[in-house]
């Protein structure tokens, strides 16, 4: 008799597929939030798997802060075209026209207006009752306690002390009008799992993850890449070409690069397993305040 045993990756995959189908079956109007990052890329592939050979029955929504790396937008447009996805792009147009950005307004105001507000506005505008997110519990301490189906009140807020019990694989999808659920199919994945899965499944990811010579400038200990002309001149002048890659992707002025030679997934994994920094440390927003992610999550940010 053969060994009926799944590898950890296949078991995580099965768990995620089950979660994604459950949402499609029980909610009226779900959406998958797509950040273009590696975790999103895995999540999107899992959704494709869940409904193969059919088309995924919900759209993607990208919250465009208008400060993403150009390569991310290019990758996004190509991917949705190649894989026949419906894509919604939502931005805080008003704040954008007022010129809000991380260089002029600082990371806190920028993140609040261009990410959190743009997200909440997008969710309300289309009346989504469930939104998938690619967050993992191992990323950050407050996420470690969040349910896979995470209830949000009509203000999109999370109450960490009042979470619904979540047992087995039975998910409570009942909400009143205006309330919603954020769903995290990758809850139990680690960064290593994500990389191994990308390798195993040959999932396309944004080239910024791979090391390459790029123009970067050191800002408060972070290596910030010169991605467009909006970077202040005094910074651009200090920029130099260095062999770097990104461990996470977001707004280019808020995402630090790491010096690296890793230009393949295998090298990235090797580097990661001997790494000296966990991945979110290259995200500037986490350091704004003590327990800042928890605060942002309470306010509706993922």
């Amino acid at each position: 008799m053969r060994n009926y045993r799944l590898s950890h990756l296949k078991e995580l995959e099965a768990e995620a597929i089950h979660i994604i189908r459950e949402v499609a079956a029980e909610f009226e109007n779900p959406v998958m939030l797509y950040s273009i990052g590696k975790d999103s890329s895995v999540m999107v592939r899992l959704a494709e798997k869940a409904f193969a050979p059919g088309k995924v029955p919900f759209p993607l929504m990208h919250i465009d802060s208008k400060w993403k790396f150009k390569e991310m937008i290019k990758f996004r447009d190509q991917y949705v075209k190649d894989h026949n996805w419906d894509l919604i792009v939502n931005s805080n147009q008003k704040a954008f026209e007022e010129g809000v950005g991380p260089f002029s307004h600082g990371s806190k105001i920028h993140t609040d207006l261009m990410k959190t507000q743009a997200l909440l506005e997008g969710l309300s505008k289309y009346k989504f009752d469930a939104a998938f997110g690619g967050a993992r519990r191992d990323e950050e301490k407050s996420r470690a306690k969040e349910r896979i189906f995470s209830f949000r009140d009509k203000y999109h807020q999370w109450d960490p002390k009042n979470q619904r019990p979540e047992l087995w694989d039975i998910y409570n999808t009942n909400v009143h009008k205006g309330e919603s659920i954020r769903v995290f199919p990758l809850s139990n994945w680690t960064e290593l799992d994500i990389w191994q899965y990308i390798r195993l499944e040959q999932i396309p990811i944004v080239p910024l993850y791979f090391a390459k010579e790029r123009p970067v400038v050191e800002v408060e200990g972070n290596l910030i890449m010169v991605d467009d002309e909006r970077m202040p001149k005094e910074l651009v002048e200090k920029a130099e070409m260095r062999m770097v890659r990104f461990r996470t992707l977001g707004c280019y002025p808020l995402t630090g690069a790491v010096e690296s030679e890793a230009d393949t997934i295998e090298k990235i994994v090797e580097e990661m397993m001997t790494a000296t920094q966990s991945e979110r440390t290259t995200r500037v927003i986490d350091f704004d305040q003590e327990a800042s992610m928890e605060q942002k999550k309470r306010e509706g940010y993922f």
Binding site: H8, E140, S142, P160
Partner: peptide, 26 residues
């Protein structure tokens, strides 16, 4: 003990998930 409130109270208040791997298992 991830959450702020817990740190103040010095106790764990909810289920928290942790992950680790060895070369035999996750």
């Amino acid at each position: 003990d991830g959450l702020k409130a817990e740190r103040e109270q010095g106790i764990t208040i909810d289920v928290a998930y942790r992950y680790f791997s060895t070369n035999k298992r996750k």
